Amino acid sequence: QVALSRTQVCGILREELFQGDAFHQSDTHIFIIMGASGDLAKKKIYPTIWWLFRDGLLPENTFIVGYARSRLTVADIRKQSEPFFKATPEEKLKLEDFFARNSYVAGQYDDAASYQRLNSHMNALHLGSQANRLFYLALPPTVYEAVTKNIHESCMSQIGWNRIIVEKPFGRDLQSSDRLSNHISSLFREDQIYRIDHYLGKEMVQNLMVLRFANRIFGPIWNRDNIACVILTFKEPFGTEGRGGYFDEFGIIRDVMQNHLLQMLCLVAMEKPASTNSDDVRDEKVKVLKCISEVQANNVVLGQYVGNPDGEGEATKGYLDDPTVPRGSTTATFAAVVLYVENERWDGVPFILRCGKALNERKAEVRLQFHDVAGDIFHQQCKRNELVIRVQPNEAVYTKMMTKKPGMFFNPEESELDLTYGNRYKNVKLPDAYERLILDVFCGSQMHFVRSDELREAWRIFTPLLHQIELEKPKPIPYIYGSRGPTEADELMKRVGFQYEGTYKWVNPHKL
C-alpha cells in the first residue's frame, strides 16, 4: 500500500502544474464570482478556492472578487462561507491571508454602469489591468444573457486571457439551449467557454479513460460480442427537503440524466481518441451522441416518491408533501431510460440510465454486464461477469466473477477481482471535483468540460421526450421513500436483457 498525506498529494500536483506551459504561476489572475451571495458560491466555490489557495495550487498573485446585487462586505462573505471551509486552528494565518486577497463589488446584473465599476475595481488591483480574468457564473440561467453581454462589453482583460465558467442547466430543451449557446458564442470563442459538469471532475469518471485505453485486457472485450448491457446509475437517499420548488422546474431527467449520466455513457462508449488533447476527446464523445436516436417512450419509466409510513423524519414525507412543490405536480423524481448506440461496436446493446431521489442508498456507478459463458459445464450455477466502476461513495473498480467454492467439488461461487483505489492508495485525500475543474480552467484544459456541439446532441436525444411529458403530463409511478424505485423499472431492465441475480454482496474494501 502507498500512504500519501494531503501535503504529498498537493506537492505532486504542484510539480505537475508548474512543469506545464499552460499554468502561468507568476502571472496575476483575477477570479470573479458572479452571484457571490448565492448558495453555490457559499457552499462550493469559495470553499474550493480556499482549498486550492491553502494547498498552494493557485497562481501566487490571485485575487478573488465577488459580485452580486446584495450590498455585502468581505466580512459578510466570510461569515456565510467559512463554515464550509473546514479550516483547522493551525490554518488561521493562512485564512487571514486568503481573505486579504478577497474583495466585493455590489451591482445589478443588467446595468452597464455596475460592470464599469467592477472593471475599475479590477484595474485598481495590483497589475489588475493586465491580469488573466476568470469569470464564474454562479447564477440562474435567466440572467446569463445580460451578464455575459455586460462582461464582454465592460470587463474583459485587454492583455491577459479571459475565460468564463457556465453552470448547468444549459437551457431547458434543445431550442433554449441553442439560443443560449448562440448568444454566448457570439461574445466569446469556444476556447474561452467552460460549461461545467462537476461529474466530469470526479476521480473515477476520469479513471474510465485510463482503464479503457491503457489496459490491453479490456480492449478486445469492450464491444457487443461480449457486453450484454451497460447500466449507469445515480441514486440519492434523500428527497427534495424543502427545495422542491427549484427541482420541480427541471425534474430528474434535466437535473441528472441528460448531463451526468449521458457524459458517463460517452466515456464508456467512445472510441479511442487520437490523443488526450481536449478536442480529440470531445470529438469522440460527440460521435457517440450522434449514434444515439431520440428516446422512445416505451423505453422510459418515470416515478415519484411517496412517504414511507414506517419511516422516520423526512422519510415519512412524499414529494408532494414538500411545501415548495406545486400542488398535484407530476414532475418525476425517478427515471429509467434505455438508449442504444447504433454503431458497429455497440449495435443492440442497451445502455440503461437510472437516477432518482429518496432511494435506498447513495450511489453513482457504471456497471457493464457481460454475456453468459458459452457451453456451460457447471449446471447453470454460473452468474454473469460484471465490471463495476463505483464513482461514489467509496470509489472502487471491481470485476464480479466466478471462482471455485472451497471444498471437494467443482462448485462455482461469485467473488470479485478488486482493482480499488483504496487498497493501493491508503487514506489518500484526493482533490474534489470542483478543485480539479477550476484548476483545469486556470490551465486552459477543456477536456472535462462540455463543448457546444456535445451539448446540442445531448438535448436532441431528450427534448422530444421532455416535450411529450410536458404536454401529456403522465402521472409518475409512486414508489416508497427509501425503496429501490418503481418495480416497473426493474421490469424494463429485465425486458431489454439485464439479469439481476441478487445473490452477490459487494464487500467494501475500504472497511476491511
Results as ranks from 00 to 15, higher is better:
321 D>K: 08
445 S>E: 13
444 G>T: 06
292 I>C: 15
386 E>I: 00
334 F>T: 02
283 D>K: 04
465 L>Y: 11
493 M>T: 13
405 K>L: 12
467 H>G: 14
270 M>L: 10
481 Y>L: 08
464 P>N: 13
287 K>G: 10
372 D>Y: 06
311 G>D: 07
274 A>T: 14
413 E>K: 12
422 G>A: 11
309 P>M: 13
483 S>A: 12
304 Q>Y: 07
363 K>W: 00
328 G>V: 10
260 H>Y: 01
474 P>M: 14
333 T>K: 05
387 L>M: 05
378 F>P: 07
505 K>T: 15
261 L>D: 00
399 T>F: 09
371 H>P: 03
501 E>W: 09
307 G>F: 05
447 M>H: 02
449 F>D: 05
479 Y>D: 02
481 Y>T: 08
387 L>Q: 01
290 K>S: 14
289 L>E: 03
391 V>F: 01
379 H>E: 14
451 R>K: 03
332 A>C: 13
379 H>T: 14
346 W>S: 04
292 I>L: 12
475 K>N: 14
432 D>R: 11
411 N>V: 10
281 V>M: 11
395 E>T: 07
349 V>E: 00
494 K>R: 10
460 R>F: 03
307 G>S: 12
257 M>F: 09
437 L>C: 10
336 A>H: 08
306 V>Q: 14
460 R>Y: 05
260 H>Q: 00
264 M>G: 02
402 M>H: 10
297 A>M: 14
266 C>D: 04
414 E>Q: 15
500 Y>K: 06
364 A>T: 15
447 M>T: 08
335 A>H: 00
376 D>M: 09
482 G>E: 06
497 G>D: 13
254 R>H: 03
476 P>G: 05
373 V>T: 12
435 E>V: 09
425 Y>S: 06
255 D>G: 00
488 E>T: 09
486 P>A: 04
259 N>S: 05
376 D>Q: 10
324 T>G: 15
360 N>T: 07
289 L>R: 00
428 V>D: 15
409 F>A: 15
374 A>V: 11
435 E>G: 09
321 D>P: 05
500 Y>D: 03
384 R>N: 08
417 L>H: 04
435 E>K: 08
375 G>T: 15
376 D>Y: 06
490 D>Q: 08
354 R>G: 03
329 S>T: 13
406 P>E: 01
360 N>I: 04
422 G>R: 15
486 P>G: 04
324 T>D: 08
384 R>C: 08
449 F>E: 02
467 H>D: 12
354 R>W: 03
489 A>N: 06
503 T>W: 08
484 R>Q: 01
354 R>Q: 03
405 K>C: 13
502 G>H: 12
378 F>A: 06
421 Y>Q: 01
438 I>K: 00
307 G>C: 10
497 G>A: 10
484 R>N: 01
473 K>Y: 10
468 Q>G: 13
320 L>Y: 07
504 Y>S: 06
331 T>E: 07
426 K>S: 10
406 P>N: 06
403 T>D: 03
492 L>D: 00
396 A>R: 02
330 T>Y: 11
422 G>D: 13
281 V>S: 06
273 P>L: 04
352 I>C: 00
270 M>K: 01
428 V>C: 14
475 K>R: 15
418 D>E: 07
445 S>M: 11
381 Q>Y: 08
277 N>I: 10
275 S>Q: 06
450 V>Q: 07
299 N>P: 07
278 S>R: 07
286 V>K: 12
414 E>T: 14
275 S>R: 08
411 N>H: 10
383 K>I: 14
414 E>P: 11
359 L>M: 14
385 N>Y: 01
499 Q>R: 10
351 F>Y: 03
370 F>R: 04
491 E>W: 12
396 A>W: 02
473 K>W: 10
334 F>R: 04
363 K>Q: 03
454 E>L: 06
313 G>E: 09
432 D>L: 07
406 P>L: 07
472 E>R: 15
508 N>W: 08
260 H>D: 03
496 V>T: 13
409 F>S: 15
436 R>D: 03
351 F>T: 02
419 L>R: 05
343 N>K: 05
458 A>S: 11
472 E>C: 13
269 A>P: 04
476 P>H: 00
301 V>A: 13
367 R>W: 00
469 I>P: 00
352 I>R: 02
338 V>P: 10
280 D>N: 10
383 K>V: 15
330 T>W: 10
499 Q>V: 12
408 M>W: 06
320 L>F: 10
342 E>W: 10
273 P>F: 00
488 E>H: 09
417 L>G: 04
407 G>R: 04
495 R>L: 11
352 I>T: 04
424 R>P: 04
336 A>I: 07
262 L>E: 04
269 A>M: 04
325 V>T: 11
403 T>S: 15
505 K>D: 15
354 R>N: 01
303 G>K: 01
410 F>T: 13
355 C>G: 10
298 N>W: 07
289 L>N: 00
389 I>Q: 02
412 P>V: 09
393 P>E: 07
353 L>K: 01
337 V>D: 06
355 C>V: 10
450 V>T: 10
272 K>V: 07
333 T>V: 00
306 V>H: 13
413 E>D: 15
416 E>S: 10
392 Q>A: 09
332 A>F: 02
264 M>I: 12
398 Y>A: 01
371 H>C: 12
414 E>S: 11
255 D>N: 00
459 W>C: 04
275 S>A: 06
428 V>Y: 15
281 V>K: 04
450 V>W: 00
429 K>Q: 13
357 K>M: 01
494 K>Q: 14
260 H>G: 01
344 E>V: 07
270 M>F: 08
370 F>S: 04
321 D>F: 06
486 P>E: 01
